[in-house]
Simulated scan of single mutants.
Amino acid sequence: MSAAAIAAVHERGRNLFPGVVASLIAAAAASFLSEHYDAPVMLFALLLGMAMNFLASDPRCKPGIEFTARQVLRVGVALLGLRFTFAQIAALGWEPVLIVVVSVVVTILVSVAAAKALGFQPIFGLLTGGATAICGASAALALSAALPSHPAKERATLFTVIGVSALSTLAMIAYPMVVQLLELETVDAGIFLGGTIHDVAQVVGAGYSLSQETGDTATVVKLMRIAMLLPVILCAAMITRAQGTAEGGQRPPLLPWFAVAFVALAAINSTGWISGAVQHYGKDLSSWCLVAAISAIGMKTQLKDLASVGFKPIALMIGETVFLAILVLMLLRFTG
């Protein structure tokens, strides 16, 4: 590497350092609060970031905050591939796979249609529907990274993260009672919990609160939903290409690099070549990247922007959550 290249890298690092460090500090504080007060870490990260939004206008911090909100986010999404293996999916048979594929596709299509009916852009329905159907805040961030630029995209992303975090926490409390009320068998209970609750942590909490087998089944079904992130990102990328150029005037790739990395890591993880320790550190790094990214996005957003969203987006996300739960129950009856 030439001296000029080294100097350019050094200068780039100096420009990014303050904003990246600010995002990491907010992420560390959010993780501490989440561990001690048992609430979603993404929600804490978002709120802390919004409390520090004055930094986004500081010329020393702005480049690093922008970098964290975009590039660090994409690294975190790519590392999600280390969360599952194809063998885990195959072990449960075809019924859960069918339920996951149908529920994800139908929920997203219904969400897009409902968003249009309520007067929103279809992309907002794709964002909220994907977050509801796949993996909550992580899916919202991944889809946001793949969707075309729009003045309201970051506000929509923040609202979606808040909504799925709150609804996922409520589902973790309510859905085990629904399982007991409907007298679902152990495996069916795991499929229902894993197929409907938005975030991984809440799926684990709800599943293992009932039994070990229910928790194991719910976790694997949830990982199946995470696997659906790749085709949905591909669809989002195709929408981006169809709508023209991306930021900077360049035509976006058909498949974003972080989506390719996601499936590559999942494939490598499925071979068993990656040790348990590496998997563990990779998952932790993914979580840190995503939490830091949502902190940075929070820093870029004014609270008054979220306060102006109105009742319709809230109704849309509640409707999507209820629809997904009913759909999975119907599919369980059909395949049972």
Rank of each mutant, 00 (worst) to 15 (best):
T217S: 07
R251H: 13
E320S: 12
L118C: 10
H280R: 14
V200I: 13
A28K: 10
A28Q: 11
K222H: 06
S270E: 08
A51I: 09
V112Y: 00
F334T: 14
D305N: 12
A171T: 07
T245V: 14
H150G: 12
A114E: 03
G319K: 01
E185I: 06
L127I: 13
A90G: 11
G195V: 08
E183T: 14
Y208E: 04
V104C: 11
I297P: 01
N53S: 14
A22Q: 07
S270Y: 04
G130M: 07
F54A: 11
S2Q: 10
G81K: 07
L327W: 00
A325L: 10
G195A: 07
D216E: 15
F54V: 12
L229M: 11
V9E: 13
A237M: 06
T271D: 09
G215L: 07
V20A: 13
L234N: 08
A22M: 05
A131V: 00
S31C: 09
F323H: 09
T214S: 12
S138F: 02
A246T: 09
V263K: 01
S270T: 10
V97S: 10
W94F: 13
S211K: 08
L255E: 06
I239K: 04
L255K: 02
L170I: 14
L79A: 01
S286W: 00
M224H: 07
A266P: 04
E95Y: 05
Q71T: 14
L158V: 15
Y175P: 08
R83N: 15
A201P: 02
Q250G: 09
I99L: 09
V77G: 01
G64L: 05
A26Q: 06
A28T: 12
L332R: 01
T321P: 04
Q212M: 12
T214I: 13
Q121H: 14
E11I: 03
F32Q: 13
A27R: 03
L109K: 11
A117Q: 15
V204I: 15
A218K: 04
V221S: 01
T245P: 09
S209N: 11
K62E: 14
P256F: 00
M42I: 15
A259P: 08
T335H: 09
K283W: 03
T240P: 01
I25S: 02
G136V: 01
V9H: 12
S308K: 15
G319Y: 03
D199W: 00
A227S: 15
R241G: 10
V105K: 00
L47V: 15
I226A: 06
I108G: 02
I326H: 04
I294G: 08
L306D: 01
A139Q: 03
I268N: 08
L329P: 02
G272L: 05
A4Y: 14
G130I: 05
A22I: 01
A133W: 07
V328A: 04
P122F: 00
M224P: 11
L316S: 07
T107K: 04
A91Q: 14
F159T: 12
F17R: 11
G119N: 05
S149K: 13
I173Y: 12
R155F: 05
P253L: 01
P59H: 03
H36Q: 12
K222M: 07
T157Q: 02
P313Y: 09
A267S: 13
F334A: 14
A137D: 05
P252A: 03
S308P: 10
